[in-house]
Structures are given as structure tokens and as C-alpha cells.
């Protein structure tokens, strides 16, 4: 398996990259460009949007460095609110602000956003259809050895069960920019899932984006890979590895987990073999959503595999080691796809 990579995760709390090795890059065998650290553009992009839109406000809970909303705070200090380590208060304050006409972005670690604030998101944001954007960053296992308390492998399942809530995963910096721009006037509440915020590049430019419509990143006739967020890059790299063996994969970036793009699911089903890849518990995430759509869509027999983290709490280790352990790096995904194809000969 891939080498476990760097142990250094201090950048998460420092908020500045450089000097330290990247986290999670061991997932990417094709894009081995550790020298170029992708920027965490959340605060900068929101500040750009806010230059022309006075409704934009940003809240965080003592993680302004980790999520780089400091970049917003510097340019729009009067519209930045750090509530201290009080995530539930943050989400509900955001709902109160939205009721007065503002468009709040409330950012914290996704484990705290989705698990600690689940009820505030349901009752105060979604039920009321307030335009609150809950930004859950450092999702999945990207916190590595900080452990299960800081991992977020349940958030998609929790969030997609809430009515009147749009659930979106950002893929990389340019994709995040597109998501943020599209989110401003999106009706109702939104849960926006980010990886570690410095995820390897998938989009060289800011993509065209419409919530609920997956982006087809690669065409191939043998297998469809439906993936999202932090697993898009390694899935594309896996597709390149498979192509070297003569296996051609279609890859969709299913950035909107809810509402799910049923046309993308149909296109995937037509290929006969469908593999979902996500940095999430296999239970109730993207894979489960796709499984539901496949069964209800009447597509006949589809060779289907949900690839993600098994229903267990993960071992201690740096992210790259965890991705390798769970076959969520490019090598692992390619192996899972090959095994899935072999089931039908």
C-alpha cells in the first residue's frame, strides 16, 4: 500500500500552509505535486462576494485560523462574528440573522457542525427555510490522529435526512468558489461539506455549477464511479490507473448529495457497474443515496458497490495512512473497482 505520508497536521490549527508536508496527498498517485499547497479560499471568496453584497456575514466558533475566515474578517470586520467555542449558539445566531435579511455563513469543523448542531440545523435553519449556510470543514478523516471526536463520517447521513436542507460537498478550491457563488441566492438552508480545505486540484478553473446536477469529469464505457468532495481527486487518479489496464471509467463529481442527480444515476446504471466512493461511513452517505435511487429507478440488475469507511471507528493515524488503510486512495479505489468488475466476470 501507499506510504503513510507525513505525520504533520499542525497546519489545521495554524491555518497557514507551507513548510509542512501536505496532508492526504498519498491518496493521489497521479497528481504528486506536494510542492504546491492549494489555498484555503473560504474566507477570501466570501470576502470577494461580500464586497458587492452587504447581506453576507460570516460566523465561526474559535476556528477563524483553521478555516481561514480571517481573510474575511480582515476585509469586513463589522460583518464577522466569532462566538467562541459555542457551535450551537453560532448556528442559531445565524438563523436569527437570516430572519432579519442577512445571508450568514457559519463555519466550524464538520463533526461539530453536523453532530453537535444537528438539531439547531434542523429546527432553526431548515424547518424555517432560513438561508443559513453551515460550512462543515475538515470532514471525513482529514483530522487524522486527532481522532474520532474530530472525524466526521456521519454528517452526510444526518444532513441528508433533514427536509428542506440542500447538502453539497466542495471538491477543491475552484469548486468551492463556484459553490459559494451559487449559494448566495439559493433558497433555504444549506450544509456545505469541505474536506481539509486545501484539497488537491480537480478543477483548473472555476467550474460552471448548478446544485443538483453532477459534473461528468471523465467518460468510459466499463464502469461508473460516483464520488464526491475529497474523493473526487483520488477517484480520477484511480480511473487513470484503471485505464492503463484497459478499464475505462466514467467519473461523476456528485457535489450535491441532496437533492441527488437522478439523471447521473441513470447514466451510471446504463454502464452496468456502479461504484460510489466517499470519505464517509458506508451507511447512509452518498452510496446509500445512490443505492436508493438505483433500486427505485427500475434499472434492472446493476453491479453495485458502496465504497467508503466501514461501520466502525477508525484507528489512530495520520490521514494518508487512514486513506490507504480503507482503500480510499487512488490505488485502493482502483483495486475496489477491479474487484467489483470481477464479480460479473
Amino acid at each position: 500500500m501507499t506510504a503513510p505520508g507525513s505525520q504533520d497536521q499542525s497546519e489545521i490549527f495554524r491555518g497557514t500552509a507551507g513548510g509542512s508536508a501536505l496532508l492526504g496527498d498519498a491518496r493521489s498517485t497521479a497528481g504528486n505535486n506536494a510542492a504546491a499547497t492549494p489555498a484555503f479560499v473560504l474566507g477570501e471568496e466570501l470576502a470577494d462576494i461580500a464586497d458587492d453584497d452587504e447581506r453576507i456575514v460570516v460566523l465561526t466558533a474559535d476556528l477563524a485560523k483553521a478555516n481561514r475566515v480571517t481573510d474575511f474578517a480582515e476585509r469586513h470586520p463589522q460583518r464577522f462574528f466569532n462566538v467562541g467555542i459555542a457551535e450551537k449558539n453560532m448556528v442559531t445566531i445565524a438563523a436569527g440573522m437570516a430572519a432579519s435579511g442577512l445571508v450568514p455563513y457559519a463555519a466550524t469543523f464538520s463533526a461539530f457542525a453536523a453532530l453537535l448542531c444537528c438539531e439547531q440545523i434542523r429546527t432553526d435553519c431548515a424547518y424555517t427555510r432560513m438561508p443559513v449556510r453551515i460550512v462543515g470543514h475538515h470532514s471525513g478523516m482529514s483530522m487524522g490522529f486527532y481522532g474520532t471526536s474530530h472525524h466526521s463520517l456521519e454528517d452526510l447521513g444526518i444532513m441528508r435526512t433533514i427536509a428542506d436542507l440542500t447538502v453539497v460537498c466542495a471538491t477543491d478550491a475552484n469548486h468551492l468558489r463556484a459553490v459559494l457563488r451559487a449559494s448566495v441566492d439559493h433558497p433555504g438552508a444549506m450544509y456545505l461539506r469541505l474536506g481539509r480545505g486545501r484539497d488537491p486540484e480537480v478543477y483548473a478553473t472555476v467550474p460552471e455549477l448548478s446544485f443538483g446536477t453532477a459534473i461528468r469529469l471523465r467518460d468510459g464505457a466499463d464502469v461508473a464511479i460516483l464520488t464526491t468532495g475529497s474523493e473526487v481527486r483520488p477517484s480520477l487518479d484511480a480511473a487513470a490507473l484503471l485505464a492503463a489496464d484497459g478499464i475505462e471509467a466514467t467519473v461523476f463529481d456528485v457535489h450535491t448529495v441532496k437533492p441527488l442527480d437522478l439523471e447521473a444515476v441513470a447514466a451510471a446504471a446504463a454502464l452496468g457497474t456502479v461504484v460510489t466512493v466517499e470519505e464517509h461511513n458506508r451507511t447512509n452517505g452518498l452510496g446509500s443515496a445512490v443505492a436508493e435511487a438505483l433500486l427505485e429507478g427500475g434499472f434492472g440488475t446493476v453491479n453495485f458497490r458502496r465504497h467508503g469507511v466501514p461501520d466502525e471507528h477508525v484507528p489512530i493515524g495520520p490521514p494518508a495512512a487512514l486513506y490507504a488503510h480503507y482503500q480510499l486512495d487512488a490505488d485502493g479505489i482502483a483495486a475496489v473497482v477491479r474487484a467489483t468488475l470481477q464479480r460479473v466476470g
Partner: peptide
């Protein structure tokens, strides 16, 4: 605002008060 789940209302009011001041 909607209510029912106890403990939320004061945070809502804080948000509204901040928004009022901002406006």
C-alpha cells in the same frame, strides 16, 4: 421566529439584535 425546542430562542434573539445593529 419558530420555536418549540427549548433553549434556542435567546440565540435567535442575539442574531436579530446583531442584525439590527448592523442595519
Amino acid at each position: 421566529f419558530s420555536s418549540g425546542s427549548l433553549g434556542h430562542g435567546l440565540s435567535i434573539a442575539v442574531g436579530m439584535a446583531l442584525a439590527g445593529r448592523l442595519a
